[in-house]
Simulated assay, not measured.
Amino acid sequence: MPFNLSLAEREHAGLKRVLPAIDRVDGRWLHAGGRQYLNFAGNDYLGLSRAPELLAATSQAARDYGAGAVASPLVAGHQTIHRQLEHELCDWLGLEAVMLFSSGFSANQAVIKALAGKEHTLWQDKLNHASLQEAGWLSPARMVRFAHNDMSALEKKLKPAAGLIISEGVFSMDGDTAPWPGLVELARQTGNWLMIDDAHGLGVLGSEGRGTLDEQGLAASDVNIFMGTFGKALGVSGAFVGGSRALIDYLHNLGRSYIYSTHLPPPQAAAVLAAVRLVRSANDRREHLRARVAQFREGVAALPLQLLPSATAIQPLVVGEETATLRLAAALKEQGLWTGAIRPPTVPKGSARLRITLSAAHTRADVQRLLDTLHCVLQA
């Protein structure tokens, strides 16, 4: 098979992915190869991954329940701690019912493959996450992609009561948000179902961190399917799907990645439960994060790079060419700053970028160090 040739071509084009050898991530610090770096490449937006409450909950649950769930949820894996987490999520977000997944990727796969038949159409934003788009391609449904956040383009493509409209809350590579009032209205007018993937909005936007819908004056009940993850602002890992009790019962029966996977480890569920309770009262962390975002955006205004319009923790600096992006990331790394160099096919060709992510764990001095170093390496 020609995989060696393919890898060589990717390396020549600056597109080869290499797994970094990281020793550990400790709050805002990343340790690798005997060095310490300020981490501007993670998704721990509220700085909760090392919160004492989460560590204590994890340890206690390991003692109470063991390290693993030992079975799939529908056999013997769904335990008291999982039910407690589901109830807390419903209370927090105003959902009728939820179910837990090991990852956002498996959650999106389960939903789309279970719901979309050959008689359905999936309308997806062109910048939707790979898990959503891949599930659409693998389903028997017809998939139609519409121009990013373009409601008039979507309206022209929609057919009445024919399927499911899917978009993200906060887009993972651009950091902007979808116009959810417009999406809700189009779904109502056409009788189509509506799904939000709010992986990057949950915890940081809205009252009590309820996410993008709340931030834009909507409720969870304004969409049919609410997916969120625990590996971003909540600082753990895993995901959930929420909606009506009928929807969740249906997915319990037909969501293959749920049915045929060992359940979320109880210590992980306990950590997420502790994180949700922290997030609901984390207004100070959200305010601090907003201040760091504003500081960064003001500081890069004079740089010879395109800063995409994002008010969230995701701040993309578009370099354009792939090898130039890698060189810039390497120069920052030399100065003790770890950033993400994002290249095609994750982003469109010609839009390779540094995906700078900010956290409530970052101090004003941390962000200033990043700004000063960016100015220096770009002038060198």
Rank of each mutant, 00 (worst) to 15 (best):
M1S: 14
E9L: 09
P20A: 08
R28I: 03
L30Y: 13
H31T: 05
L38F: 01
L38C: 06
A41P: 06
D44A: 08
E53P: 01
A56G: 01
A61T: 14
D64T: 14
D64N: 14
S72N: 13
P73N: 12
V75D: 12
Q79H: 14
H82S: 08
L85Y: 00
L85G: 05
E86D: 12
M99L: 15
A110S: 14
K113Q: 14
A114Y: 01
T121H: 07
D125H: 10
K126T: 15
L127A: 07
H129V: 12
S131Q: 14
W137M: 14
P140T: 10
P140D: 05
R145L: 15
M151Y: 01
M151N: 05
S152C: 02
A162G: 04
G163C: 13
S167Q: 03
S172I: 06
S172P: 00
M173S: 09
D174R: 07
D174A: 04
G175Y: 00
L186N: 07
A187C: 09
A187Q: 04
R188F: 00
Q189C: 05
Q189P: 00
L194M: 05
L194P: 04
L194R: 01
D197Q: 03
A199E: 12
L202S: 08
G203H: 01
L205S: 06
G206H: 00
E208Q: 14
G209L: 03
R210V: 06
E215P: 00
A219Q: 12
S221H: 11
S221W: 03
D222L: 02
A233L: 09
S237G: 14
A239L: 14
G243R: 07
S244M: 11
Y250C: 13
H252I: 08
P266H: 03
A269N: 05
V279R: 00
R286G: 12
R290F: 02
A291V: 04
Q295F: 07
G299Y: 07
A301E: 13
A301D: 11
A301L: 10
P304N: 05
Q306W: 04
Q315Y: 08
Q315K: 06
P316A: 10
L326E: 10
R327V: 02
A329E: 07
E334L: 09
G336R: 04
G340M: 11
P345H: 02
V347C: 09
R353P: 00
R355I: 00
A361L: 06
T363W: 06
T363V: 03
L370H: 12
D372S: 13
T373C: 12
C376S: 15
Q379I: 06
Q379A: 15
A380L: 13
